[in-house]
Write a protein that binds this DNA or RNA. Sequence first.
DNA 1: GAAGAACACTAAACGGGAATCACCCAGCCG
DNA 2: CGGCTGGGTGATTCCCGTTTAGTGTTCTTC
Lengths: 211, 211
Amino acid sequence: MTVVLKKPHKSARKPKGDGHLRRGEILAAAEKIFIAEGYAGATIRKIAYAVGVSSTALYMHFRDKDQILLEISNDAIERLLDLNIQIAGQPIDPLSRVRLMLEAYMRFALDNPNTYQLVFCSTGDHVKSDKIGETMALGDRCFEKFSEPVHEIAAQGRLRSGSAVQAAEVLWSGCHGLVSLLITKPSRGWSEPEQLMRVMLDGLLHGLVTD
Amino acid sequence: MTVVLKKPHKSARKPKGDGHLRRGEILAAAEKIFIAEGYAGATIRKIAYAVGVSSTALYMHFRDKDQILLEISNDAIERLLDLNIQIAGQPIDPLSRVRLMLEAYMRFALDNPNTYQLVFCSTGDHVKSDKIGETMALGDRCFEKFSEPVHEIAAQGRLRSGSAVQAAEVLWSGCHGLVSLLITKPSRGWSEPEQLMRVMLDGLLHGLVTD
DNA sequence: GAAGAACACTAAACGGGAATCACCCAGCCG
DNA sequence: CGGCTGGGTGATTCCCGTTTAGTGTTCTTC
């Protein structure tokens, strides 16, 4: 879990108009540490040390710690949204689109566990930065994109139980439950993740949607 | 979220053999604060203040903060296990037992959101206390109890896809996903929890189990 | 080329978390 | 009476995120 701290050298002061370049360096360093050590492990001081700058310097570019990590997370969520948009544009039946989106969602979670936890597994009430609003909005847009094919299915009268909104919420939360447990309890003896994903999708989709 | 701090008076020193009574007082105070304010809100200092004792005194009875909160959580999980055992003993078909257990599980989560988060939504790698092992063991026993009727269903050849273990894991994680999102994202505009629970159960059970 | 403002950046400190340490004091037992 | 021991504490340590007050460099303007 703990990664070696690199770059103990002091980073050269930026020329006068180039302070904004620091911002990118901070984000890059923070992302590495955040991915490797998670929210609690990604300390302000540790990030600053990796950049080669005092911890105070970070506050010239970000209001607080959460703004840094949420900015990183937002980038990731945007990639997820792009995936959803791309799938939404495919000329296939809505059920297949739903399945593809949920698969992409779960793979995204397993590929970005710390981002996923920060965004989808925390209450977010400890966050002072208003960046959280942006994150939530992105998450909502993902859910909206995902809801579209579910509504199409509902319009075809193929929903076994519940409304379209309820079905979308259940599909989403079911997949969320699987990946969140796989992420937070990795030591538990799980079956193969790929197979669990398949069983979850087969189960939910067959259970909620008629052929 | 924040609760008024009571009992600012200093608690009388316990007579010589009665130090163990303190332990109960600490647990009671800690439980109140933990239920009201969650893990981060249940500070050692705050608990000690509520008991009317110095924060150091807590370390006479508990190794660390986690031991206190996990002891509280363990009591709750034991109640959940009892529920499962009671349902397991009912003379009804396994499918009904599965449904009853999952319903009880989700209601438990919604009734004990902070305990649920601590036990089922956190990685637990920040926990030094070995109490976490006890908690995990209790959780495992809950899962084992829940797995029994699923195996019965599998033995009847009524599983649509996946093994009995996989089906149990998917059923559990699906329900976990629903309640964990309801708990951690209460501000999102959810459908009625009761209906979502029904749709989740209908969907998963119909999708995984044949009649 | 000197003055001065603007900017990048820092040292030191604050307050609040968990946890530890050295100690204190009351009561009981011999 | 004297000492032991169990209940309890104040001060301290080490982190954390964050703030304050300031330093030193560089660019611009006279």
